[in-house]
Nucleic acid binder design. Sequence first.
DNA 1: CCGCATCCCTATAGATACTG
DNA 2: CAGTATCTATAGGGATGCGG
Lengths: 139, 139
Amino acid sequence: MGTVKKRSNCLLSSSLDIFGDKWSLLIIRDLMFNNKNTYNDFLKSAEGIATNILASRLKGLEENGLIEKSEHPGSRAKILYRLTPKGIELLPVIIEIHLWAEKYFTIPSGIEPTLKEAKKDREALIKSITKSLMENISL
Amino acid sequence: MGTVKKRSNCLLSSSLDIFGDKWSLLIIRDLMFNNKNTYNDFLKSAEGIATNILASRLKGLEENGLIEKSEHPGSRAKILYRLTPKGIELLPVIIEIHLWAEKYFTIPSGIEPTLKEAKKDREALIKSITKSLMENISL
DNA sequence: CCGCATCCCTATAGATACTG
DNA sequence: CAGTATCTATAGGGATGCGG
């Protein structure tokens, strides 16, 4: 999943070459909303990603500039993964997927307020979340 | 790819269970923007999907209510695939992916005006495209 | 411990040939 | 035209190993 081979020069196709799989956006989600930022954090997520798949996806996301590694402030042994601006900019995509899904799946507890806000003032919500994510980068 | 097994009750995860692969959204794209609506139309797209994969994806998309089959008005031999409202509602997701991709890939000819319109008045564009897609349904 | 790498095995993706 | 059949390659699950 590392190197990218563009299937066509369609923007959608090129995007799917990068994150068009069942796992990449879930890792982005964990980084964005779930305060997860280490290898083991991702492993523990509800969907149960396998370790080799996680390693492969992290490598691909890093090679494509969506995430980056850095030192963990608490432990020398740990590696901290962070979203880059390019990764953070996927927020609108993820929000739209949520808004779509909300109509067809039962809504998990806790996110209803955010969904409501997204429908009321989408731009403001994106701006606000982006801001706090960007601040996280410059630690 | 037919039956759905939800990995978790996360809205994003459930969505990726349905269209989180390298092909499904491209078929939706062809139906939305490229006036393609038969099996062979999809086969001929630039990315070069294999026939068995196409069959599998069409089945999955139909089982999940994103597309539906109908009779082709011109030829009895042909099958016409159409987006359902549930499929059409993926338009905002696809637009956001395009807007993201525009920043990181070279833009293919022809879609620049649409991208510009999407940035100027996103809601109006979505409304307009949705309307014409919906009219297509009730033939 | 933590972040992987490796191995083994199964399931799904995918290329190509072929069929009703 | 719209798919199957067949075969191979890759994705993915699960256990385990291993250096830092």
